[in-house]
């Protein structure tokens, strides 16, 4: 059966409308995004971090060395499936947080460790450390070292699928007690509030996964205003961006560089000195 001209016309019109609508939608979800409501301490806040491998992992952990678990009450670590070194380092980092808190607790002669009360400047503060306060997600690597280029799209897709899956299975940060006015029912799943990434391919794919979820406003991914993405360009990049940096320049919420020559790149690069120091 030959399609009638009307049918073809309808198809074409529909196609054009879809393209226009999709473009408008894409523009609306790209930065700048509206500023979020002020958040009080004690509000469950989750942070997702990607540990790539080797140098990327080292930089990410150096960036996070002053992480305040009373602000970022739940951490999600995204790590390559076979990357045992990064996995060990993430666990070591979390254990370090426990130790830090225990030390400050000992100093203040308090007993409970997890989610216990600490008085500082008259303000009640809660610590969220220990195995319940973090999750590790393992993803297939987007591209293994020395992997032939032509098989990369396939592994990248597998990685994207894994990212979408675990983004939708992030448990909502628990909130046992709070003094800071956070009320209301707690959802079972909640997208991470903020996502920190640097150079590895997996991180790039994760950011694109958040864009897909926000594009379709899947489980109110967009209307909740979560999944703020922060990209930190490697300290090793002095004058030019890495491939990941180029791919993410226009889509992340904040773009941090570590050398003055890159400040303002693409109208977006922010320079705050060396952050991995």
């Amino acid at each position: 059966m030959i399609p009638t001209p009307y049918f073809l016309q309808a198809c074409l019109t529909l196609f054009v409308i879809t393209i226009i609508a999709a473009t408008a939608r894409a523009i609306s979800i790209l930065p700048p995004r509206p500023v979020r409501r002020k958040r009080a301490r004690g509000t469950p806040t989750s942070m997702m971090m990607v540990l790539g491998s080797g140098g990327h992992t080292a930089e990410m952990l150096a960036i996070q060395r002053d992480l305040d678990p009373s602000k970022y009450t739940h951490r999600f670590w995204v790590i390559g499936e076979e990357d045992w070194m990064s996995r060990a380092k993430a666990v070591e980092f979390e254990e370090g947080l426990v130790e830090k808190v225990m030390k400050s607790q000992r100093e203040r002669k308090e007993e409970e460790v997890s989610a216990s009360k600490e008085l500082g400047d008259g303000e009640a503060k809660f610590w969220y450390v220990g195995p319940d306060s973090y999750d590790i997600f393992l993803v297939p690597r987007a591209r293994k070292i020395h992997q032939p280029l032509y098989t990369t799209p396939w592994t990248a897709l597998l990685c994207l699928w894994a990212c979408l899956k675990f983004l939708c299975h992030c448990k909502a940060a628990p909130c046992p007690k709070t003094t800071s006015g956070f009320t209301g029912p707690l959802p079972v799943y909640a997208f991470p509030d903020v996502i920190l990434v640097n150079g590895p391919a997996t991180a790039t794919i994760l950011v694109y996964a958040t864009l897909i979820l926000r594009f379709f406003n899947f489980r109110s991914a967009e209307s909740q205003g979560g999944m703020r993405t922060i990209y930190i360009e490697s300290w090793a990049r002095v004058k030019t961006l890495s491939l990941s940096g180029k791919l993410l320049l226009r889509v992340v919420d904040r773009f941090v560089v570590q050398w003055p020559d890159l400040e303002g790149i693409g109208g977006r690069g922010e320079y705050h000195g060396v952050v991995v120091g």
Binding site: Q64, K71, D193, R228, I230, P260, E263, H272, G273
Partner: peptide, 16 residues
């Protein structure tokens, strides 16, 4: 350029 806020300061701004 140095606000000494680091990445956590930026994350703080982003989440509110």
């Amino acid at each position: 350029h140095r606000h000494a806020q680091g990445v956590e300061g930026i994350a703080d701004e982003e989440v509110g």
